[in-house]
Simulated assay, not measured.
Amino acid sequence: MPGDQETTVLVVDDEEKLANMFTLWLRADYDVRTVYEGEAFLAEVDEDVDVVLLDRRMPGYSGDDVLEMLERREADPAVIVVTAIDPELDVLEMPFDDYLVKPVQHEELVDAIELQMRAREHDADLQRFLRLETKRRVLLAEHREMALSGEAEWESLVEEYDELKDRLQRTVDDFESVLEAYRSSHRGRA
């Protein structure tokens, strides 16, 4: 069941038709704001924004630039990258919560938003784990694990992932259900 009008979603994409379509899909269930460039994002994002749907490839400030600028602001929304860019190792350094490769469907956006809102109800360790799970998932979908083995950034991710998973299995009562919800919302997607 989708969220409520109290959840504010900010759509940031330079493809106006696509951004408007996302807005139409989501506005019945969320308070949706839409901007078409990174610079406008900076004026629009505030403490009221719960989730940002962010394209990576935009003129002016790219989505990657926006992510860097967002880290320096007090607003702390969940960031779902929605892009046509296939993930490379550079995603390991990027501060996002989820990564969807276009094209995406209405249900995928709602599932991703709802999962982020659910994750925000938990502590920072679970939120960090889900970020690592996302990066792990998108990289494994794009690259063979053998190709990633030996890459220092990948090895670091795997080590932190395993440590957090072990700790969360012992300390979070509904960890397995949160993880299953996350994984089921991403089945069949890169």
Score class of each variant (00 low, 15 high):
residue 44 E to V: 07
residue 182 Y to V: 00
residue 41 F to V: 02
residue 52 V to C: 07
residue 97 D to I: 00
residue 100 L to G: 03
residue 75 A to P: 07
residue 82 V to N: 02
residue 86 D to Y: 11
residue 187 R to I: 11
residue 101 V to F: 07
residue 86 D to R: 12
residue 21 M to C: 10
residue 19 A to I: 12
residue 106 H to Y: 15
residue 37 E to K: 11
residue 84 A to N: 04
residue 123 D to P: 09
residue 181 A to S: 15
residue 88 E to T: 11
residue 159 E to V: 12
residue 69 M to S: 11
residue 52 V to T: 06
residue 99 Y to D: 01
residue 102 K to V: 04
residue 30 Y to M: 06
residue 149 S to V: 06
residue 4 D to L: 09
residue 151 E to W: 13
residue 16 E to Y: 13
residue 167 R to F: 02
residue 85 I to V: 15
residue 164 L to Q: 08
residue 58 M to C: 09
residue 182 Y to D: 04
residue 149 S to G: 11
residue 61 Y to S: 09
residue 16 E to F: 13
residue 63 G to A: 02
residue 185 S to W: 09
residue 97 D to C: 12
residue 73 R to I: 10
residue 45 V to H: 02
residue 10 L to W: 02
residue 184 S to L: 14
residue 48 D to A: 14
residue 50 D to M: 01
residue 65 D to L: 05
residue 86 D to F: 10
residue 164 L to D: 05
residue 39 E to Q: 09
residue 69 M to N: 06
residue 50 D to H: 05
residue 44 E to N: 06
residue 108 E to T: 15
residue 27 R to W: 09
residue 107 E to P: 03
residue 59 P to T: 11
residue 63 G to K: 00
residue 23 T to P: 07
residue 159 E to S: 13
residue 117 M to L: 15
residue 56 R to E: 09
residue 74 E to H: 13
residue 15 E to T: 07
residue 87 P to Y: 04
residue 47 E to W: 09
residue 35 V to A: 08
residue 102 K to E: 06
residue 21 M to V: 14
residue 121 E to V: 04
residue 105 Q to L: 15
residue 82 V to M: 04
residue 36 Y to H: 10
residue 77 P to L: 05
residue 132 L to S: 03
residue 119 A to C: 10
residue 118 R to L: 13
residue 181 A to I: 00
residue 56 R to V: 15
residue 110 V to P: 07
residue 165 K to C: 06
residue 149 S to R: 14
residue 17 K to Q: 14
residue 2 P to K: 03
residue 101 V to G: 03
residue 130 L to R: 02
residue 80 I to Y: 01
residue 47 E to S: 12
residue 45 V to W: 02
residue 151 E to H: 15
residue 71 E to C: 12
residue 6 E to H: 13
residue 175 F to E: 05
residue 126 L to W: 00
residue 16 E to W: 14
residue 80 I to K: 00
residue 118 R to N: 08
residue 133 E to W: 08
residue 74 E to Q: 13
residue 183 R to F: 06
residue 22 F to H: 07
residue 152 A to M: 12
residue 68 E to L: 13
residue 75 A to M: 06
